[in-house]
């Protein structure tokens, strides 16, 4: 399995960096918004994509989901799933910003702030915001392709890849019946 190439040894470390980087992005973005949900709802409403009430609900839910995804990435649980969700959110954000741009809206994207309308005379800077989200999207896609990373709960739970010998190593010698048993035990845990 281990092809002893440089990349094979480096990949889990690179994945770790990407995972923690993306976790930081989501925790910061969610943390900044979670203190004022109404303001975030108005920021969503500023995109004029959905009704006011829908925007307020989305605005209230989004920071918590961002923090949850950030925490999953931080501890490395369900990394690939969390990466898929990250990628999905980034695609949605990129689409939202592009659509605001295309419609000539003059808004703050609200990516790392409370967002809203920009004061007159201030021109929005959509392109860097889109590039930044594309970079985050690339990080998420990397994690989808290479979800195995160092210091992750996934690796800890995935015993066959674990360095330390686990009690289930009986699996190697035991009969089918008892292995079945082990699987059930683990399933219930």
């Amino acid at each position: 399995m281990d092809e002893r190439t440089g990349w094979h040894r480096a990949q889990p470390w690179v994945s770790l960096l990407v995972r923690l980087g993306l976790a930081g992005v989501f925790l910061v973005a969610g943390g900044l918004k979670v203190t004022d949900l109404a303001a975030n709802g108005r920021a969503v409403n500023a995109y004029q994509i959905m009704s006011y009430d829908a925007a307020m609900v989305v605005g209230a839910i989004q920071p918590f989901v961002e923090i949850a995804v950030g925490l999953l990435l931080l501890i490395g649980l369900a990394t690939r799933l969390a990466a898929w969700l990250s990628a999905g959110m980034m695609v949605a954000f990129i689409a939202g910003i592009s659509s605001a741009w295309a419609r000539g809206l003059n808004i703050d994207c609200g990516c790392f702030s409370k967002g809203g309308q920009l004061p007159p005379g201030v021109t929005p800077n959509y392109l860097p915001e889109i590039f930044r989200d594309v970079a985050f999207l690339a990080m998420a896609i990397f994690l989808i392709i290479y979800p195995v990373s160092r210091f992750s709960l996934d690796a800890r739970l995935d015993r066959p890849f674990s360095a330390e010998p686990a009690e289930d190593d009986v699996l190697e010698e035991d009969s089918d019946e008892s292995t079945d048993h082990t699987a059930q035990r683990r399933g219930r845990a």
Partner: peptide, 13 residues
Amino acid sequence: ALVIAGLIGWGIY
């Protein structure tokens, strides 16, 4: 975990 997080946000709203 994600659903619970979303419900917390919705509940507060």
